[in-house]
Nucleic acid binder design. Structure first.
Lengths: 131, 131
DNA sequence: GTTGACCTTACCCCCGGGGCAGGCTAAAAA
DNA sequence: TTTTTAGCCTGCCCCGGGGGTAAGGTCAAC
């Protein structure tokens, strides 16, 4: 299968597939004309990558997941550990974003939002009172 | 004030200050020896930038906030609009992260996490059933 | 005078690709 | 058959927001 077909099957772009090859995640064979030829198994691996990426794993972490996927002597404990670490990272990002949001809400609430130049948002960013 | 002192006062790094200068946010004067010389007002602006950045605004958006800050004919409405847009962006990120988290939790819950190679996490990433 | 701390510019690096240039190749239309 | 169009190839620069480091100038203390 050609690169663009494989990309479509996996919900990715051709560029992403070339990138994943460059970082040794999926290295397809080549036709005599030099075109990449993706086997059905490689397309499955690409779908694996797409799902793992959209669950928040970095490309490097996807590489670790793929190593487990390809290793018949794996222990499911190791996969679960990766997922739990990712959950904790996501939760930290959630905490950070929630703090930003409450911060922003306080700014917005303090500002009249009218045609006057007086603005509590700019005042607070400038002076930092009651932050 | 020298760059490292100004950076310390603002809670930033010297490198960041040079970067902010390169993108025209704060352009300090120069001493005869070529060193950057930050005025107290410029240090205040740097603190403004630091607070806006830690509230989630991009460098480009901070530039817009600074334009308002420096414009005595501004309308507070415009500042409030920027803040509300940022709140919506933050909330979309929160939604995405929460979906990731529930996704990850489902993966983790389905996996025994023992010494066996059978792993529901890898199965689901591979096959996509019950995602 | 010399040492160490600070400053300067200039370069490459991170992630995860996007976009484009220039050149082949394959498939479809005339 | 020829031409057009579409798809593929590699290689390069770009994004944010700086971090790290190198090579060199400067300043203050001892």
């Amino acid at each position: 299968m050609n690169i663009s077909q494989a990309a479509k099957q996996a919900g990715l772009t051709s560029k992403a597939l070339r990138y994943y090859e460059s970082v040794s995640l999926v290295i397809p064979g080549r036709n005599p004309n030099g075109y990449r030829e993706y086997s059905p198994a490689e397309v499955e691996t690409l779908r694996f990558i797409q799902r793992a990426r959209s669950s928040g794993f970095s490309v490097e972490e996807v590489g670790e997941l793929l190593q487990l996927y390809r290793n018949p002597a794996r222990r499911s404990h190791d996969a679960k550990l990766l997922v739990r670490e990712k959950i904790e990272q996501v939760e930290e990002q959630l905490r950070n974003l929630k703090e930003m949001r409450s911060n922003l809400r306080a700014l917005a609430d303090a500002c009249a939002g009218d045609d006057s130049p007086h603005c509590a948002i700019l005042d607070q960013l400038a002076g930092g009172e009651s932050r």
